[in-house]
Amino acid sequence: MSAPAGPALRRANDPPLLILTSLASGPKHGHALAKDIEGFAAVHLGPGTLYGAITRLEERGLIEPLASDDRRRPYRITAAGSTALAEAVADMRRLADVGAGRLGLTLGVTG
């Protein structure tokens, strides 16, 4: 049974949110995840932090491992994980819109 995404995906620099964001572009193993996250968020997740978050995300059914002959097992985002990520992104978008509106900024869309 998987728990709802809940408050674990509320902060933009939360390791679970960073991992889901990374996996949204396709399956990755631990090292590739760490490198990707460092690239798009400038956050270095240590091995302990990364695997702590992977453990919790897998327990909650938000990601799942793929079969692999190598020790470097890749993970992919599940449908529940995509929903949780979409909700978190929408929350952050609402906050960003309010902030941008009050500052008179126009938000661009990045790919």
Binding site: G30, H31, G46, P47, G48, T49, Y51, D70, R71, R73
Partner: peptide, 28 residues
């Protein structure tokens, strides 16, 4: 096994730092 593979990738033959040891001790 996965975490050891990640450590090997990150360390690339170097000795683990005190910070890494403490981080793993805390996470464990």
């Amino acid at each position: 096994g996965e975490l050891v593979a990640l450590l090997e990738d990150e360390l690339d033959g170097a000795r683990p730092t005190v910070g890494l040891r403490m981080s793993l001790a805390l996470a464990g």
